[in-house]
Design a protein around this nucleic acid. Sequence first.
DNA 1: TCAAGACATCGACATCCATCGATATCAAGA
DNA 2: TCTTGATATCGATGGATGTCGATGTCTTGA
Lengths: 118, 118
Amino acid sequence: MSKSELTLTPVETVACCSPLVREPLSADRAERVAPLLKALADPVRLRLVSIVAASEGGEACVCDLNDAFDLSQPTISHHLKVLHEAGLLDRTKRGVWVYYAVRREVLGDLAALIGGGA
Amino acid sequence: MSKSELTLTPVETVACCSPLVREPLSADRAERVAPLLKALADPVRLRLVSIVAASEGGEACVCDLNDAFDLSQPTISHHLKVLHEAGLLDRTKRGVWVYYAVRREVLGDLAALIGGGA
DNA sequence: TCAAGACATCGACATCCATCGATATCAAGA
DNA sequence: TCTTGATATCGATGGATGTCGATGTCTTGA
């Protein structure tokens, strides 16, 4: 680590150090990892991530995502914002449309942290 | 699958089928997976799981867990209940003490679901 | 310049959740 | 049986969160 652990973002935190089951998580690290899991811990957001990840090109337009749910457009927008701010989704604007893409390394790091004992 | 997907528990659901990034999660599956992530998505519960998993013998007594936090005993008891009911922790009573152990297969299955694309 | 459409933000509301103190339960010893 | 200590349950409370309708911001094309 080049940066002090105290300056790490949640996304950086999840990639560092050993998995959950190897040694006790520090309070600091737990505080930074939890928001990522919290972002994922919603049925709608889980499906959003899954739909985006499974789309061709690895990205999806908000317009398509809206159609996949029986929820209002602001609600989907809110969930996308949560996922983006957590660092799980990248955001790109092309013309009038906005595309979201999954940051797979983050998902991979999260998985390694959780299931690292395997 | 021998059981219909509609009868699966959250813990069973997380073990079945393909990872998040392979194909879109169904609404039903998302509804059953989310509670598991929600159980993990708390700094205190993350540390509880980590402490238990990293303990020798793979289990820890509640009395030790209480000491590891600056929180009231009922609060720790509440968090352990959440983790137990989610299916992440096993519970055993021996004498006056209660021991919790991590169900590693569940953590492993969760990790596979999230990071399955790797 | 204007109108239309895509997406985000805002404010409100209902529900959920982490935490606590008080109390209950239950096992072991005296 | 009584007491003590370990853990769980209960009820209350403040704060977070999912959802919505209304509205704002941009971009495009007419």
